[in-house]
Design a protein around this nucleic acid. Structure first.
Lengths: 332, 332
DNA sequence: CTGTTAGCGCATTCAT
DNA sequence: ATGAATGCGCTAACAG
């Protein structure tokens, strides 16, 4: 009954006639002795199929070489892009990403964040709906940490954010220039930071343009919720609908067309995020382009800095870029 | 200079006046002694903000509570669905998923698979382009492992696969019933298992229907490659185009329409996978529906079984379901 | 029921 | 240049 199925440091050391310390040094490139010794050890290691146990190594070193990424919903293309950027950048520096999907349950997020963080060296936290109180409490437990999509008033941690208010404002202004005056806004999840910011942007817009009216409608974050909101949009008697994001816009457009209206002829529709599909939708979506992959990359840079005791780069507030396509057109 | 920033088992034990073993037992619910002792220990632990070091625990236990998932491209919605299913199922059993994205570089996959696997208890491997030779070598090093999207002739490991051949055959038959006789197939990555299976399905189709011709064209796996193949499709003088997957179909449809043709009136187009967006495309995509999220879930079930020394459920070969929508129509 | 002891496998001082 | 000894923090066997 051999318990161990994989070779160990000590085993290699014994067979190569050296000490475990020497094996360790050779495996980590800190060896300064004779070449032939190194060669012999490598040979034995190869024969035994040995490679250092990552767990034991992490314990001794005090670091795992992986970072956690907590997202509300990995099914959302926007978060997938952040993950892609984070994953690539981290990999370039020899680190891995452990994902935790809270499945939109902001109740569980604090626990999930802390627990996941404990398995890694650091955390990238994206929790747009967590209360500030909870967030502050969590942040103290999970450092090093970088915030995505929001900042924390209390605890000072690096963050990468998007200027959602400005983004939706630019979209509204674009439609206003096209002659639109009656708008509908399909809201995202109530209470989420990203929805609140958009509402602020719309408030600014209304203040600037007394001739415009914006009807707030219940929306959501998925294509299905966009579909379901179609009737309400039509009843609202508007000429343009601003969806919370591209997914909602896609769902809305499809349903509206099924109901016999034309987009953009009868109704202009806009999205937000500029997910890859936005350009391939029919009609292609006018939206606010957000560099999510870059966000993931920047999050990594800051995390890496903090992990190495260096000061992180300053926070950034990305300005979404208005991307005009075919789903919007001038009145008349 | 206090080095430790977080409390340790021994520290709690000392302050609570018990042994480390007792603390361990209480933290893991294996304590059978007096309630007041447990209460006191919990109180001390809470005061010190103590929770067991996951790394040390893993080392002692010999397991980490996380599994690795290697994918060729996390940007592909199909893989994202598998991940979602896997992640949810694993989470339900108290496990986490560590992702590794090989960025379509099958060269690096063997190393990446082994290295990532070493950080976890098991691996879900999705490497459609790895050579069988390499695959066989890798499989021996990474067990427990479950294969997604392909099987291994040599090493017997559990696998969840899709009957791509049957799927594309059903699509072709559907078009044939609609009167189509001249087809174009936009191939995926050459040499990939999933592309080979589709080619086999098409060969079967041609054998059955001597009156039909299928022109093989260079494609890819992204919307952009679909766009780029549009010219070739038009030159091929066909009435129906079968894209490798939905992404390619989406790109093809958009470009073809830009070129002034109507889909499905002038050209029927089909996809594969039935990604969420397929239903929202204009026109909605006729495609082969694959239950990818279920695939991820089933992969977890088998992995979990093997990890616990139980026999895994039998391999499954999922039959894609023909999903007829608006991108295909009868000739004339 | 609870404490003592001995690893888990590795990296790293400190000697030599 | 190399080996012996120690610790990372925890769990499990074994006593008592």
């Amino acid at each position: 009954m051999t318990r161990r199925v994989v070779a160990t440091n000590a085993e290699v050391a014994r067979q190569a006639g050296v000490s475990p310390a020497t094996v360790s040094r050779i495996m980590n490139g800190r060896f300064t002795g004779a070449q032939e010794v190194a060669e012999r050890v490598r040979q034995v290691a190869a024969d035994l199929g040995y490679s250092p146990n990552h767990l034991a190594r992490s314990l001794a070193l005090g670091q795992t070489g992986s970072v956690a990424f907590l997202v509300p919903d990995l099914g959302n293309p926007a978060f997938q892009q952040v993950l892609a950027g984070l994953s690539k950048a981290a990999a370039a520096d020899g680190h891995r990403v452990l994902i935790a999907d809270s499945a939109e349950s902001s109740e569980d997020e604090p626990l999930l964040a802390v627990d996941t963080r404990r398995r890694c060296d650091a955390l990238v936290l994206c929790a747009p709906r967590m209360t500030e109180e909870r967030l502050a409490a969590v942040l103290k437990e999970v450092q090093p940490v970088v915030l995505v999509n929001r900042t924390s008033p209390g605890v000072p941690v690096p963050s990468i954010s998007i200027d959602y208010a400005k983004g939706i404002l630019n979209i509204a202004e674009h439609l206003h220039r096209l002659g639109h005056r009656r708008f509908a806004y399909l809201a995202g999840v109530e209470g989420s930071m990203s929805n609140q910011r958009r509402l602020q942007g719309l408030a600014t817009f209304e203040a600037r343009h007394p001739d415009a009216t914006v009807t707030r409608l219940v929306g959501g974050v998925t294509a299905q919720s966009g579909s379901e909101a179609a009737d309400a949009v039509l009843e609202a008697d508007v000429t343009a609908a601003l969806a919370f994001n591209d997914l909602v816009a896609v769902g809305l457009v499809q349903r509206v067309r099924e109901l016999g209206l034309r987009v953009p002829d009868d109704l202009s529709v806009t999205g937000f995020d500029d997910i890859p599909f936005a350009a391939y939708n029919t009609p292609s979506l006018t939206t606010a382009s957000v560099p999510y992959e870059l966000v993931g990359e920047e999050a990594w840079r800051r995390l890496y800095a903090v992990m190495n005791g260096e000061p992180p780069a300053p926070d950034v507030l990305h300005q979404p870029r208005l991307q005009v396509r075919d789903s919007t057109r001038a009145i008349r």
